[in-house]
Design a protein around this nucleic acid. Sequence first.
DNA 1: AATGAAACACTTCCTCC
DNA 2: GGAGGAAGTGTTTCATT
Lengths: 157, 157
Amino acid sequence: MIDDLDRRILNVLQQDATLPVERVAALVNSSKSPVWARIRKLREAGIIDRQVAILDAGKVDRDEVFFVTIKTSSHSKDWLDRFAAAIAAMGEVQEAHRLAGEIDYLLKVRVRDTRAFDTFYKRLVAEVDLFSVTSMLSMETLKETTEIPLEAAPASE
Amino acid sequence: MIDDLDRRILNVLQQDATLPVERVAALVNSSKSPVWARIRKLREAGIIDRQVAILDAGKVDRDEVFFVTIKTSSHSKDWLDRFAAAIAAMGEVQEAHRLAGEIDYLLKVRVRDTRAFDTFYKRLVAEVDLFSVTSMLSMETLKETTEIPLEAAPASE
DNA sequence: AATGAAACACTTCCTCC
DNA sequence: GGAGGAAGTGTTTCATT
């Protein structure tokens, strides 16, 4: 489906999507036309889903991250629909996963400060029935990336 | 520091950074020149940290997400340095947070399949001393976004 | 089929109003 | 904040291998 050159291109674009095609081409040891055609196909195929600006969370005053683990007693489709809709509508929730095992759901929630989290928390428990909820504050973010490393042979041979 | 127009611009660019300045301007009810100047300043100030391509994880065969909770017995600076370096070098780790409370660290790990996770897991425990490690598989991703919603007055008045 | 070169259209970027 | 123009990119086409 995608070959080595595609992977090298994707690795570059995942780090910096502002680079002119010509520079990308140089980085992956190819030239403008073929690289441009490949990027186009990767976009059309939806392999490149979108291109976004990543903000500095601190500089926009959204420095606090909480992880919330949730257990639910009701596992009905109806409940899940309501829960998913609530999560989707709450901008503070950056990630929501349904887990296998003890914990049913894990949320990553980004807010301005502890007070803002408290407000969010109250809104959450008011909207959906939850059996148990545990909130964990992130003291320090050691790593945070959107990159999916695709192993590719080195650009030079 | 940043005003309402800046916030509206940022909200647009966080969703689609490929839009020409003119389109962004239209969406935030302004015009080309001022919006262009603001985007430039937001970049220079580092508020816009970078611009990246977001891939469809399934289409590049990296569909499985695991969350790993870690407790450590050694809380020395030396240990943390080694841990941080190991995490930084492992591409499978998309996020790593140091938490307050019971659990010391939480990792988000993205891999091809369960087997690849097992390989990762072995590599991790071989490199750093960990007191206890729990891995949780994500069965379903309900939400996954890089967007930090900045409340701004609606674009229309 | 993939690549390289060259032409055109559009955006960005800057200056002046 | 708006208008316009030079420079650089993206995009298309054609020729080449």
